[in-house]
Amino acid sequence: MALYVDIKKKFGDFELDVKFNSESSDIISLFGLSGSGKSVTLKCIAGIIKPDRGNIVINDTVVFDSERKINLPPQKRRIGYLPQSYALFPSMTVKDNIKTGLINHKKSERETLVCELVDKFGLENVKNLFPHQLSGGQQQRVALARALSTSPKLLLLDEPFSSLDSQIKSQLMYDLIKSLDEFKSDVIFVSHNKDEVYSISDKVCTISNGYCHSIREKADAFSKPLCKTDALLLGCENILDITFRNGNRIVTDSGIEFEITDDIDFTSIAFYSDCVKFCTLGDINIKAKIKLIVEKESHSIFILQISDNKKFITAKLRNNDIDRYIVNDAVNIGLKKEDIFLLK
């Protein structure tokens, strides 16, 4: 199953420019902060919003092509769409909600198909209830059953976990992964949560300010952020701008100085806070002052300052190791070069 998306759309100052494709049946994550254009992209693919320019091809079917003036209505695209709010029809029971997707089937078939879906998604006990009588998890299952009832060629999931409590989220995530395993077509999963993205998807497209041009294997995307947005999305606590560069000698705005071996073009660097070691065994060793210690359940966050720089860096230490450090102490910290990401 193949998917090709290349769309552009202007909304006032905001410009959407999204391009990615996939050849195999994959779960593709559209990974970005809120307001980055994720939901709009889904709506364009579903046919709810018309892009200004571009193409959308699903399994050799051109559903949108601005040059050839093709724009299939949502009804003809065979796409399952699960919006953030689930959009269950409030005036219909669970069963009737699912039945809406089967409107093109014969009446006799409809009943059997609904029963199959009700059974598959464990909705037997609630099938005659109305949406407002269901829990968040049940609502999600109904919405998924309804979206899959049309046997879509592509499934779009818009932040399916955003309106749920974190306590019930993990169980629902396992359920969703199981359901998606059985679904043999492409899935586009929109999220701003890196744990969800990692657990659910095969491939990742990061999107920021409406711009998205790279699709990467999950492992690659998570181990090698390419730009500041990538690093931010992956939760890199330290994202530092280069303030001075002389040949291979680099100085950042936090005061970290080091030399690179390759002649690569980059404007910032990033590293995780747990890569900062409290020792001098790194490739880069610096003296820093502890400005603040924030205790968490299993570890503590150290906010560190190098000489008088305004930009601080963040380090992380397990709680049983923190007793010897107090605020305003000077410490030696070390960083390994391989832990530093060079960002464009």
């Binding site: 709506k43 949502p74 009804q75 796409i79 919006p83 959009a87 997707g101």
Partner: peptide, 18 residues
Amino acid sequence: FDANLSDTAMTLGLSNSY
């Protein structure tokens, strides 16, 4: 009216009059 309802309904293949 919540536009998400009609958007989703369209993707389910429902006609505008429905």
